[in-house]
Design a protein around this nucleic acid. Structure first.
Lengths: 230, 230
DNA sequence: CGCGGCTTTGATGTTCATCAAGTAAAGTGG
DNA sequence: CCACTTTACTTGATGAACATCAAAGCCGCG
């Protein structure tokens, strides 16, 4: 793969708010320690507990950030799409990953040496401030969502998550769910059976059309009402 | 109040990991824009939505960080003691507070101009890195706790929170609960009635002695077992 | 002293997890 | 390529965990 292909290069840097602040020299420097890697759907990018040596920047695709509890159950903390800076979140608090990340769609990453990124923090204070802002935003979003979920009943959570994928991830009323029923359950803290039951109810009530992973929202107003009602 | 009392000064700066990296000149600079304020138990430090102009550093006391949902119910996100850098968490993602903070014990703060802190990020990269690490750590802790709670049943959550105050906040088997029953409920996402019921059960089972807000842990092993069992 | 807020206990009902069982889909190996 | 195994999906029945409702005692405060 050609790492210096200007098209890829452009994707990796200039579309990213975070890297906007870099000088040409800094871009050259960081570019020299970067590589690119494609992860297929289902593949693991990093595992909780591993040492953090690199900084991952999601270029395309979709990933899940998750944690396994004592009983072995997975808890999905967040779904991230490109430019969500999901790498940020798990890279600076510790020398080891606190969470695992795996691809729920084919995903390509730019991979930087973490030391180089830390060096940038030192040399470029605009970059540092931007980093701080972004870490805070990601945390805020995760925490706000969790609180939102806590006050919703199961149907409200399902409605919320359908809207999340429709509006935030795919910007489309029709889309293919990248998660299994089990993963949806892990994301919104309910059982697989009840995810299925709620989806079936929504179908019977003509709120959505669903066939396997293909979803089409029919009654958007009702879906929003259910999501907001909690 | 004498802001230049070396004893106070020491509390504000040198005991703090965050401010360790400052040069004497920087300390002088930041010291010139700092003030100090005492908040009595129950008083509000900042309210969600307000513009952030200052950076709060908790010197002594105990505060709660919380959010009010659509139905008006409070959700406590975190309890913070001195040097938990709770100010960090809500200061850099936005120009307005995403959460409210109020004192659950008499608490004194060092208050800095936020611009001065942002200036420090620019001039002192060790400080910047330290800030990034601390924000990440605080976020990590909050998210990990929330996930932990999700997999616990009510008795497990109560046990967890008693242990949290005993071990982390007060380092003592006997302590006075700084939260009302209702606030405990808001912290671990259950109803006030069930908080009371669980506490009563623990008393009947001779796991704790409780009289009003005064708590004494009698059977620590059992409490840990219940907390871990979930 | 009486009012409102906090605490406590009991009774009732609802939501949801668990269990069970069966179908469909997707890998796996001969 | 087909039998075989495994994994994902689906529905129904049951019971447990928990929220809600109700009522009464307690305490601080104007």
């Amino acid at each position: 793969m050609d790492f210096h292909n200007p098209e890829l290069y452009g994707h990796c840097f200039f579309k990213s708010i975070l890297f906007d602040s870099l000088t040409p020299d800094e871009i050259k420097l960081i570019d020299s320690v970067k590589s690119e890697k494609l992860f297929r759907k289902g593949q693991t990018i990093c595992i909780e507990g591993e040492e953090i040596k690199e900084f991952y920047h999601l270029k395309s695709g979709l990933v899940k950030l998750f944690k396994v509890d004592k009983s072995g159950k997975e808890h999905i903390i967040s779904i991230a799409k490109p430019f969500d800076f999901i790498g940020l979140f798990t890279s600076f608090s510790n020398s080891n990953y606190q969470y695992s990340i795996s691809a729920i769609e084919d995903s390509s990453f730019c991979i930087f040496d973490l030391k180089a990124i830390k060096h940038l923090i030192i040399t470029n204070h605009v970059f540092a401030l931007s980093l701080i802002e972004n870490i805070s935003k990601v945390s805020d979003h995760i925490i706000r969502t969790k609180i939102d979920m806590d006050s919703k009943m199961l149907r409200g959570r399902i409605a919320y998550i359908i809207l999340y994928f429709s509006e935030y991830v795919y910007q489309n009323n029709t889309f293919e769910f990248p998660l299994s029923r089990k993963e949806i359950a892990e994301l919104i803290d309910m059982t697989t059976e009840n995810v299925i039951r709620s989806l079936s109810e929504f179908r019977k009530d003509n709120i959505i059309h669903i066939e396997g992973k293909q979803i089409k929202i029919i009654n958007m107003d009702m879906l929003k009402k259910i999501s907001n009602a909690g």
